[in-house]
């Protein structure tokens, strides 16, 4: 109880800091929390806003599916063999810390303008961390587990379901959480550069108009969504039987 109380205090503190910054920077630079939430309320009532949300959600769900399935698949493929794991790990880490925005023109030239470029860009951001986490999880399964499974004469299917899967699940879940957030970021950045629809486009359009209220409202909307789904995934992760 005390902890959740502290958390509420922290949120109030953050809102106060925001309000303070608003007083410091003025109306044009930064809208106050009250104004932002009021504007967000107005936006939520319009059909146009929901069209943008649907567009982003569509691209995001494709991208997340590709990131998760592709990432787990690639990680499993590389992690199953010790040598392929050690060989590919630094390559994957180098790809992960690359500023992928740089490659945006390349993605556009390959996929053209539109939803496929957004999906590709989102998947580029999300797939690699999922693959890294999955690969490391598989490589770090204790050898004694395999020996036990052999001693019990488990079939490969049983081995996968009862030994490998439970052993890697926590790591894969944290990888999935990271992949989820990064895919969202990738899709949004993709929309900011080359799109006519979606929340990222809304922000770029508002940026051109100097419409700070809309920028802040969309940013707050996205932050609440991102933190909320992250908390949800964390809860699923904690509730999963070990």
């Amino acid at each position: 109880m005390k902890r959740s109380g502290d958390f509420i205090f922290l949120l109030i503190g953050l809102l106060l800091v925001w309000q303070g910054l608003h007083w410091l920077a003025g109306d044009i630079a930064l809208t106050s929390p009250a104004q932002t939430f009021a504007h967000l309320g107005k936006l939520l009532a319009t059909a146009r806003f929901w069209e943008h949300v649907t567009e982003t959600a569509r691209a995001f769900s494709f991208a997340v599916l590709i990131s998760l399935i592709g990432g787990v698949g690639l990680g499993a493929l590389l992690g199953i063999n010790r040598t392929s794991g050690t060989v590919s790990e630094p390559i994957l880490i180098a790809l992960y810390s690359l500023p992928k925005v740089t490659l945006y023109p390349l993605v556009l030239l390959c996929f053209g303008l539109g939803i496929s470029a957004k999906v590709a860009f989102g998947a580029m951001h999300g797939l690699i961390p999922v693959a890294i986490f999955t690969m490391k999880a598989i490589m770090q399964i204790k050898p004694v587990f395999w020996r036990t499974a052999h001693a019990m004469r488990l079939t490969p299917r049983q081995m996968a379901m009862t030994v490998a899967l439970p052993a890697v699940l926590p790591e894969v879940m944290s990888g999935a959480r990271l992949g989820f957030s990064l895919t969202l970021l990738g899709v949004l950045i993709g929309e900011m550069f080359a799109s006519q629809r979606g929340l990222g486009f809304m922000i770029t359009a508002a940026m051109g108009l100097g419409d700070i209220a809309t920028i802040m409202a969309v940013a707050v909307f996205l932050s609440i969504f991102a933190v909320g789904s992250n908390a949800l995934l964390l809860m699923v992760d904690r509730a999963a039987p070990r």
Partner: peptide, 10 residues
């Protein structure tokens, strides 16, 4: 999880 870049315009 927060797309920080969204605050760049601000």
């Amino acid at each position: 999880a927060i797309p920080t870049f969204m605050f760049y315009p601000v």
